[in-house]
Design a protein around this nucleic acid. Structure first.
Lengths: 195, 195
DNA sequence: GTCTATAAGATGATAGAC
DNA sequence: GTCTATCATCTTATAGAC
């Protein structure tokens, strides 16, 4: 239990900074030196907490997946219906992008996956699998309750929504057009609503 | 005019290899050494053709944009209707991904844009702007001819399709699930068809 | 837990010979 | 156009002192 204002451990701070750097520059474009400079310590000290860069990557993704699972659990249990859950899901991505046009951590790493340590790549894979499963479940419930209408399998529909959100971040960045996100997720979700 | 079997110039070969490497690993994960090894020459020789890595990036993106424009021009002029044009557009991306699960060059660079030389980033931006414009035009024609139905602006709809395709590539890669693409673009295009 | 010192290797880049 | 030689810099990582 962490009380308000308590100073973060070096371990946690390293993960925080690494996450921000990866979401904005990518795994291959941040270094132990970047972390060391921001923290005001030496790179050797980073290696004390994370022996290799791959170890840091794995730890970061484990934390990221756990936090994301918690967000999904909260959305699933806060009383909203399926339509509202999808909107809240999309809002998670919108919120991330609003911060300095940051990508989803796994969106970035998905693009870079070929040049990533295998253990890190495996964590990325798990993130998408879990997310797809959760979304497919929401879509299935929504369809059964006749709140949502779509053709094809819930899994394909889940994939479309994830791809749309991840892609929207990538393209919005590529175009350096921050309002890009605005209409898009909304447009898509509107179409899912049963008439 | 290049006759069949004519040997590629070193200049062109460099661009070819660089493109493949960026589409599979990213701009920050390929080096002049990678190019040199594949070509059987030294890195100094690469610098003769492209003084800096940024120069190489800009030249590559100019060529990529030009080729992409030609593909779009062909699609616009080969007699198909709007629905067929959208399908052919999506097929361009599907084809790219089928080759060793490569990303769209600008999808990859869009993700990496924050750590890219400014001149390179500017080329990425142009790619997306041009593509969006072309797609919006096709969508507008299709709607006018009552072949396509959608709500919202053609531009938003164009963005959705681009985001969906770019995102699908990123996520399919992240999941190392090559069949991911299969249903998705198809599902989306089906929904666009006027009843 | 953090430091200094150090290592081995990669990277983008240049000068000048052939 | 390609080479050798060389450069400064960065990068991940380790050993051992404090």
């Amino acid at each position: 239990m962490r009380s308000t204002g308590e100073k973060l451990s070096t371990y946690d701070s390293i993960l925080d900074i690494a996450q921000r750097l990866i979401q904005s520059r990518g795994y291959n474009a941040f270094s132990f030196n970047d972390l060391a400079k921001e923290l005001g310590i030496r790179t050797a000290s980073i290696h004390y907490h994370f022996p290799t860069k791959a170890d840091l990557g794995v730890a970061l993704l484990r934390r990221y997946r756990q936090r994301f699972r918690q967000e999904l659990a909260w959305i699933a249990s806060n009383g909203g219906d399926s339509v509202s859950r999808l909107a809240q899901f999309a809002a998670l991505f919108e919120r991330t992008f609003k911060t300095d046009s940051q990508l989803c951590l796994c969106g970035m790493l998905g693009a870079e996956v070929t040049s990533l340590p295998k253990r890190v790549a495996a964590e990325v894979e798990r993130f998408f699998s879990e997310t797809e499963l959760w979304l497919a479940h929401v879509l299935t419930s929504g369809k059964r309750a006749q709140l949502i209408a779509f053709s094809g399998s819930p899994r394909t529909q889940a994939r479309m929504l994830i791809a749309l959100l991840e892609g929207a971040m990538v393209v919005a960045r590529g175009m350096r057009h921050n309002a890009y996100f605005q209409g898009m997720a909304r447009s898509y979700l509107l179409k899912l609503k049963a008439a």
